[in-house]
Simulated assay, not measured.
Amino acid sequence: MRVVVRTGQTELPQDVLAALVAKFTSAFLETRWAWPRRFSEINPYAFLLTDPRAPELDTAELGRLSDELHVHLFGKSDESEVTILLFEGPDETLDDFATLDAEGVARAMTDPSAIPPGARLSRIGPDGTRILTPPDQAAATAAPSAAAPSAPPPERAPNIEGVQGVYYAGREVFVADVISCTPADARTHFSLVDGDEHLPEEPDVFDAACVIAAMRLLAESPSQTPLYLPVSFSTLMRPTRRAAYADMIAILPLSERRRLAAAVYDVPRAPSFQALTQLREALEGRFGAIDLRTSDPAFEIDQLTSRAVTSVTLVLPAAEPERRLAVMRRFAARLPAYRRRRIWPGVTNIRSARELKAVRETRIPFLTGPGVCRMQTVPVGGRPWSADLLPVE
């Protein structure tokens, strides 16, 4: 696969542009080109894609890449262009095509004689369809066109992207949104605010998919309130995955740092000083706020230094209503410790009007969950909303 960027509208140096294309495309493929399919980077603009299960590559997921990469690089301008090309041919021709300069790629798109015998070149449309490039190349190339065409693989439905609002009870207003992204064939929706049963089965893939969703929301949403991106604590504690995550979030624009926040989930009761230091080093360059999400109401807030993170959010357990209320009250009993550390407390997975009323009585400021705001297609951050009218459906 070759990413072709044709534009006179960017002042980015070529090395910076190449790095952005490589990082965004890698993050995109990591979420869309799921195992057992594989990909590897040949150079910043070229990637080798394989699918051991299919006689022909399924390009449904690649259709959105050009649009999303376009928005990331150039905003919504119609004066620039990003094209995704798929080159299929003998192994010995792949490197030659991958290393073609811009003039060579342009010639291959218009001149059938520039395409090696036995190979074909297609442009991937926004809906994932293949468009032979040039259209008359079939007459100038050998097989695979000589073989009977195989039925196209079934098109996969796109991921389902959504947000759920963060409610500030003191002023009865939504102040932020938590991003989520769920594969269309998942057994249930994924969400950080709807309880542990809705956490992703593959945290790495989920977190990467939410980075891609964040790019779209940054471009499309007029609101300037924060967007919380999921970050797996256990992932960041593994050095190799921490490095990969740093590369992935590098596609997020530095200019939007104040609007981006990290919602770090699966945090233990007592994260070590070293763990928190590693976490901040990995995240502070791209996120203006860091929220730790824990299922333990006895989270050891006294072990944190002042303002070590922005907030700590309790995830209510999947349990009987009385047990859930008891856990919430145990967490609320430690509010003075949170004030001493200048760290905001919050509660998530609020499910009922009774729980909403109880948590408001404790004066815990930040609230999320299906009893506060259910999954939305556009951010609700910035909207005043009476507590009597919750949840947002």
Rank of each mutant, 00 (worst) to 15 (best):
M1H: 09
R2E: 11
G8T: 12
Q9H: 13
T10V: 08
T10S: 15
E11N: 14
L12D: 11
L17M: 15
A19I: 10
V21D: 02
A22M: 11
A22W: 00
F24H: 05
A27H: 01
R32H: 13
R32Q: 11
P36L: 12
P36Q: 07
R38W: 01
I42E: 11
N43V: 06
A46Y: 01
F47H: 04
R53F: 13
P55H: 05
E56T: 10
E61C: 04
F74I: 08
G75W: 08
K76G: 10
V82Q: 08
V82F: 02
L85F: 04
L85A: 01
F87M: 07
E92G: 10
A102K: 06
D111Q: 07
S113V: 09
S113R: 15
A114H: 03
P116Q: 08
P116R: 03
G125E: 15
G125R: 09
T129M: 10
R130Q: 11
D136A: 14
Q137K: 14
A139Q: 14
A140M: 10
A142K: 12
A142W: 08
P149M: 09
S150L: 15
A151Y: 11
P154E: 07
P154A: 12
N159F: 10
E161Q: 13
E161T: 09
V163D: 00
Q164P: 00
Q164Y: 04
G165A: 15
Y167M: 02
A176Y: 05
D177H: 13
V178D: 07
V178F: 14
T182V: 07
R187M: 09
R187P: 06
S191G: 04
G195D: 02
L199D: 04
P203C: 13
F206C: 06
A208T: 07
V211T: 09
A213W: 04
A214K: 06
R216D: 14
L218R: 09
S221K: 04
S221Y: 10
P226M: 05
P230G: 09
P230M: 05
P230C: 07
S234T: 15
M237S: 11
R238L: 11
R242S: 09
A243T: 13
Y245F: 15
A246R: 15
I249G: 01
I251S: 09
L254N: 06
S255F: 11
R258C: 07
R258M: 08
L260S: 02
D266N: 15
R269Y: 06
Q278E: 09
A282V: 03
L283Q: 03
R286T: 12
D291T: 10
L292Y: 03
A298T: 06
F299L: 03
Q303N: 11
L304F: 11
L304H: 03
A308Y: 00
V309T: 06
V312K: 07
T313A: 06
L316Q: 00
E322C: 00
E322Q: 13
R324S: 01
A326S: 14
V327Q: 08
R329D: 13
A333C: 08
L335C: 03
R339Y: 12
R340K: 15
R342T: 12
I343C: 02
W344T: 13
V347G: 01
R351S: 11
V359R: 00
I364A: 00
L367G: 00
M375V: 12
P379W: 02
P379V: 02
P379E: 05
V380K: 01
